[in-house]
């Protein structure tokens, strides 16, 4: 139900945008699932319409940013009868805590979902202590 309300709220402005000759891209914070496993953190970001060439993940100690731009060919020529997708740019920033290996981060795009894997450093990994 929330989703419907949200769409109704956004329909009007996006219609207005769609009629401009060169519509401005809306900045969108993509929704994320974040989970932790024994040796890494995984971030899954919804970025529908983004292809491999249009996505950038940058990491430095303590900071990670993911950006993506929806492909131009997603926007069809012709008369838009119904417009909820619109032109979008995705951006989301994350703070990385100590104990993450920022230089070993891996990212891949799976069906419009950006999957970022942040490995944990050895100090952070859970370890079983042998009983002597």
């Amino acid at each position: 139900m929330d989703t419907n309300n949200r769409n109704d709220l956004e329909r009007k402005p996006s219609h207005a945008l769609a009629k401009r000759p060169e519509p401005l891209a809306t900045l969108v914070t993509p929704v994320a699932d974040i989970y932790e496993t024994a040796d890494s953190f995984t971030i899954r970001l919804d970025m529908p319409g983004v292809s491999k060439g249009n996505v950038h993940v940058m990491a430095e100690p303590g900071y990670l940013v993911a950006r993506g731009e929806v492909d131009a060919r997603v926007h069809e020529s012709g008369t838009l009868l119904f417009s909820e997708i619109g032109r979008k740019r995705y951006i989301r920033e994350f703070k990385l805590g100590e104990g993450t290996k920022h230089n070993e981060i891996q990212a891949q795009l799976e069906d419009g979902v950006l999957v970022i894997t942040v490995p944990k450093s050895d100090e952070l990994k859970a370890r079983e202590i042998t009983i002597r």
Binding site: P48, E76, S77, G78, T79, L80, L81, F82, S83
Partner: peptide, 17 residues
């Protein structure tokens, strides 16, 4: 998004994942 073109209608649905 739904667009009408000369010869067809194009419907796009966001379904990531």
């Amino acid at each position: 998004d739904i667009a009408e073109q000369e010869n067809e209608f194009v419907v796009k649905v966001e379904l990531p994942g």
